[in-house]
Write a protein that binds this DNA or RNA. Structure first.
Lengths: 199, 199
DNA sequence: ATGATTATATACCGATCGGTAGAAAAAAAT
DNA sequence: ATTTTTTTCTACCGATCGGTATATAATCAT
C-alpha cells in the first residue's frame, strides 16, 4: 500500500555505482547523485539511508555484477589458470567501454578526509578479503603440488593482487585492455603453464 | 624590506606535502593545511597562491625529495639493475616509517570531482612521463642487447610502472616493506640477472 | 620619527556540503 | 468517500568549503 515508487531502485543504484566508481566517494556529491539517478534527496534517503549506505549498496552491486569472475576463477582446477583468469578478469573490468576506467574498490576512497575513513577502511578490508580468498586457494594448490616451487601461497596471492591493483591504476591513467594484457603476460612468465600431461 | 615572514616556507611545504600525500588533494581542507602548517589562510595564499598552487609546489617537493631515486636508477649501466632499483626505490618510499603510506602521485587525486580535474590530469601526466623516461632507457638497453628477448621496451617500462603502482596500493592498504620486496622478487624472476661475465 | 612595504590576524564572503522538516500527492484499505 | 500509508516536492538547516577584505603589526629606507 501507499504511494508507489516512481523510479527503479536497481537502475538508480547502477547510476550511483558508476558515479562513485568514476569520481570516488568524496568526489561524488549528493547533487551529482540525485541528478544522475533522476530522484530527489528525500527519495534517496528514504531508500538508501544516507550517502554512506548508498555507497555500500553500490559497492555490493559492483562486487556482484563486476567482480563475479573472481570467485568463478577460484574454482578452476589449476592454480595457474586461477591466476590468469583473475588477472584478465580484473583487466577486463577495468577497461570495459561502457564503465568507468579502473577499479571502484580503489577509486572509491584511496586517500580521503576523516569523514570518509569508514568507507576507506571498508574498501581496504575488501581488498584483504580477496587476497585471503586467493591465498586459501593457493594453499590448496600447494598441497596438490600445483604451485611453482619456491613460493609461499600468500606471497603468490599478494603478487597477483598487486598486479591487478597496478593495472587498475594503469586503466585509470588511460591504458587500454591490450596494454594490460601484455603486462599480465609478462607477470605470468615465471609461472610455467601446466603441461597437458601431469608431472 | 617589509615585515619578515614568521614561518619557514620549506617546513610549511613539507607539512602540506605530507597532508596531501595522506589525505589526497580533495580530502585535505584549507583548515587541515593552515592548522598543520601553523599559518593563517592569508599567509598561505600570499606565499603559495591558492590550494592548487600549494599542491603543485608540494608535488614538486615530493618529486625532488622522495622520487629522486628514479632518475638515479636510470643511470645504471644494466637495464635489469635499473628496473630493480626503481621497484625497490618505490617500495621504500611507499613504506617509509615517518611518511604516509603509498604514493603521493596516486593518493593525490585518483578519482575526484570536476573541481580537481586539473590536478588529476597533472598527476596522470606525471605517471606517463615516468613511464616514457623509463621506456627511453629501455630503448637504449635494447640497442645494447641488454633486454630479455621477446619484449618491447615500452611494454617493459609499463610493466615496471604497473608493479610499482600496485605496490603503492598495497602499501596504502597496510603491506610492509618486506612484503613488497617479495612481490618485487617475483616480478623480476623472468628477467635473468646479468652474468658477471658478458655474454 | 616618518613613510613605504610586506606579513600578520580577524572577520567575513558566497557557494556548496550532507541531511531533513513539512506539506502535498498517489496509491490501498475500509 | 474517507482514512491510512508511503513517496514525492519544495524549502530549508547548520557546517564547512575555498578564498578574500580590512586593519594592524613589524621591518627597512630616509
Amino acid at each position: 500500500m501507499g504511494r508507489p515508487r516512481e523510479f527503479d531502485v536497481d537502475e538508480a543504484l547502477e547510476t550511483a555505482m558508476e558515479l562513485f566508481w568514476r569520481k570516488g566517494y568524496e568526489g561524488t556529491s549528493l547533487t551529482d547523485l540525485t541528478e544522475g539517478m533522476g530522484i530527489t534527496k528525500p527519495s534517496l534517503y528514504g531508500v538508501f539511508g544516507n550517502k554512506e549506505g548508498l555507497f555500500l549498496k553500490a559497492l555490493e552491486r559492483y562486487e556482484r555484477t563486476k567482480m563475479n569472475f573472481f570467485h568463478e576463477a577460484l574454482k578452476e582446477p589449476k592454480a595457474r589458470v586461477v591466476a590468469e583468469k583473475i588477472l584478465r578478469g580484473f583487466a577486463d573490468a577495468q577497461t570495459a567501454e561502457k564503465d568507468p576506467s579502473g577499479c571502484m574498490g580503489i577509486n572509491g576512497a584511496l586517500a580521503c578526509s576523516e569523514a570518509a575513513a569508514e568507507i576507506q577502511k571498508c574498501l581496504i578490508e575488501n581488498r584483504h578479503r580477496g587476497e585471503r580468498d586467493l591465498s586459501k586457494r593457493f594453499e590448496r594448490a600447494a598441497q596438490e603440488g600445483d604451485l611453482p616451487p619456491g613460493h609461499e601461497p600468500f606471497d603468490l596471492a599478494r603478487y597477483i593482487m598487486t598486479i591487478s591493483q597496478g593495472t587498475a591504476i594503469q586503466a585509470a591513467s588511460g591504458a587500454d585492455r591490450a596494454a594490460l594484457y601484455r603486462v599480465i603476460d609478462m607477470a605470468l612468465q615465471f609461472w610455467p603453464e601446466p603441461g597437458t600431461q601431469g608431472s
